[in-house]
């Protein structure tokens, strides 16, 4: 009765093309270098995460096509306006069992590689270097606790000028993703990051390495990464920590071993009196 208002075919075509548009936008994003997808994985964990995500997306796409293939076929063919008469079946135990079992199997297939990665992510043993990252309202403090560079300690604050935020000055290339002191680590070495916080919760995240760990006041947590390639990798605080939560980025600079040694020497020289940042916790 009211159905006539829907000119059937045209609406379905519209819906179909909208879907296609959505999913093709996904396809172009799957390209590894796209700025709209994961940043290029720079560690084993990030790579595994990336691969599992791609796998999951293909599985989802397949299920999507099957389910909505059936549904849209039905929508096109089994409509009253074409004179289709309704069947009256409403039950089939066999079918129900099949479509309970198959998803279960698919999920197991997805959980399997994920389990391996989780175990690997948790293995923070035998690091070459241990760095403590302390979240403050609103900056990060870093202490090199162990390994080459031990004793180095500094704060790392957003270096984007306020004028850029307010829009009175043109925004720079790394707007909001730049700091005064980068965390420097050597390439190919296992870096253990211990997180804690001074005041409220924060979270330390560098997407390219696939590490994200909450920083909790009064407690320490840890995570690790090994960078594949020298370069500068940027991340941000990802746990709401108050007013300037959006303004406490993380910049990790990965260097060749000899450059790193040089950096350590310079840093040590520059700060003859190294104070544990913890002492400034006011």
């Amino acid at each position: 009765m009211w159905g006539e208002y829907m000119s059937s075919k045209s609406v379905m075509t519209l819906l179909g093309s909208a879907t296609l548009a959505l999913y093709s936008s996904m396809a172009f994003s799957l390209d590894e270098t796209s700025k709209y997808f994961h940043p290029q994985p720079q560690s084993v964990i990030a790579q595994e995460t990336y691969d599992q995500h791609i796998l999951a997306l293909w599985i989802c796409l397949a299920i999507f096509i099957v389910v909505f293939g059936v549904m849209f076929y039905s929508i096109l063919k089994h409509r009253k306006s074409t004179g289709y008469k309704a069947a009256n079946f409403h039950h089939s135990t066999v079918v129900e069992i099949i479509w309970t079992a198959i998803p279960l199997l698919i999920l197991i297939a997805m959980a399997f590689p994920a389990t391996k990665t989780v175990v690997a992510m948790k293995d923070t043993s035998e690091p070459d270097i241990t760095i403590k990252a302390t979240g403050y309202q609103w900056m990060w403090g870093y202490d090199y606790l162990q390994g080459e560079g031990e004793g180095i300690s500094f704060f790392s604050k957003l270096s984007t000028p306020v004028a850029q935020v307010k829009g009175t000055e043109a925004k720079g290339e790394n707007y909001l993703l730049e700091v005064d002191n980068n965390v420097v680590v050597p390439v190919g070495k296992k870096i253990r990051v211990i997180t804690t916080a001074n005041d409220v919760l924060h979270a330390w995240w560098v997407p390219a390495f696939g590490v994200k760990q909450d920083a909790i006041p009064g407690f320490i947590r840890d995570t690790w990464f090994t960078a594949n390639k020298p370069g500068v990798y940027r991340g941000q605080c990802v746990e709401l920590c108050g007013k300037d939560h959006g303004y406490m980025p993380i910049v990790v600079e990965v260097m060749e071993a000899d450059k790193y040694t040089q950096w350590v020497a310079d840093k040590k020289k520059a700060s003859a009196a190294v104070v544990n940042t913890a002492a400034v916790g006011n």
Partner: peptide, 23 residues
Amino acid sequence: AVPTGVKVFNWTATMWRGSMTFE
């Protein structure tokens, strides 16, 4: 996801060979 999937499949099966209108 399993029981949730069952629901979606059931809805699809309800539509299948129905006599649908689209109010």
